[in-house]
Design a protein around this nucleic acid. Structure first.
Lengths: 219, 219
DNA sequence: AATAAAATTTAGGCAAATCTAATAAATTAA
DNA sequence: TTAATTTATTAGATTTGCCTAAATTTTATT
């Protein structure tokens, strides 16, 4: 199956939305891809034709198993390039997403498998997300919840959902990275902000918007 | 200046043709890009508009100094990726050209400069071609001639002009690579074929078509 | 110099991916 | 359960990059 860059981006976004939400809507996908609903409808017809999605007028969009397989291959490429950029070229985690968005569209099984090998077949990327293997199989996500819903008091950061430079720069500035050990000091019901503390540094407060995007596991 | 992939490929091909020939014609460029003359005319108008080429109807095409600068940046990306593929991912020299054709279109100064550094700032690529530096400056090509025109008897292979898999596989099969030391045994005027010998291996004959594409320097 | 041949350009079209504006369906609210 | 609102789709254009066929210009030949 030969996909255009545009088609690959649609498949990837549909996968991403399916992962978090229940249903993928025309408007939601348009928002995710920074395009217009009319464009999404057009592309939906094409992807249905290629049997990558199930789609009926007004009924929303779902990846077929073939679509899912395609998505996992794209995600594999994306995450392996992110690893390369961070580990070999010393980029920081907030810089790699945009670059990987471009590199992921170079379609060569051999290239990507060699790259994986070169990197020691990593299983998680710089944002804590699992990397599908050559067959598209993804290691179980470690049981993790977002920080705003965590029940334990002492937690370890396992991943970050939002890959925007803005969030990642903020986290870096606050000293939060993968593996950071946090202690919840206080939860403020008014705006759902949380006061947290890392090691023996002074405590600070983060908004709900931020805590929703930090994935953690109890320590 | 933001160039599309198509525009970058045109610029690169024009540069390549200017390097070898004297004038770049519509038909020649169409052949190089595996497209039609009419398409070249269309694109010529666009590139002229962008001040990357000098172009007047029926008068052929020439890169402006800005066009040349753009070409050197693309070539730098191409050749650095080739180095990466060969040195880090263990690809052979006949496999890397096609992959680099795709990777070269990822436009990030930072990425390419980090990559260069990671590779130890190489100055020649796996086919013996010089790599432009970050400013687009290229180290002088070592004085080299193609094998069919070489006057000395003992020669060293410094580069290969044609990057086709077909030629490179042939050379590999014959044991010819960068740095190989050749001895010319005989030249046959009839078809301009040449009998050569490497080290203490048996001599063999290569066609003019092949020898034209092997660059050498006298030993 | 006139004509034939080759090279180049123009005209008109097509496919991909997008857009805006208009329409239709589904959902929510009154 | 109508009406209002939101969501989704269609219709019709646009841009980029390419094409074929026809026309034009340049170059080569007699």
């Amino acid at each position: 199956m030969n996909l255009s860059v545009a088609e690959e981006n649609y498949i990837k976004s549909i996968y991403k939305l399916e992962e978090s939400q229940e249903s993928v809507t025309t408007t939601g996908l348009a928002y995710e891809l920074d395009t217009k609903p009319a464009s999404v409808t057009d592309m939906a017809k094409k992807l249905k034709e290629k049997k990558l999605i199930d789609y009926e007028k007004y009924q929303g969009i779902n990846l077929t198993s073939e679509g899912k397989k395609a998505a996992l291959h794209i995600i594999r490429r994306h995450r392996l390039w992110e690893c390369f950029l961070v580990e070999k070229l010393a980029f920081s985690w907030e810089e790699v997403h945009e670059l990987a968005e471009e590199l992921e569209h170079v379609r060569s099984e051999k290239l990507i498998n060699r790259l994986s090998e070169f990197l020691g077949n990593p299983t998680i990327d710089p944002h804590g997300d699992p990397i599908p293997d050559a067959q598209g199989k993804m290691g179980k996500q470690r049981t993790q919840v977002s920080l705003d819903q965590a029940r334990a008091r002492r937690l370890e950061v396992t991943a970050v959902s939002d890959k925007s430079t803005a969030l990642l720069e903020f986290l870096t500035a606050k000293g939060i990275r993968l593996g950071s050990q946090l202690e919840i000091i206080e939860r403020y019901e008014f705006d759902n902000s949380i006061e947290i503390k890392i090691r023996n540094q002074p405590a600070f407060t983060i908004s709900e918007q931020v805590s929703k995007n930090i994935m953690v596991r109890p320590l």
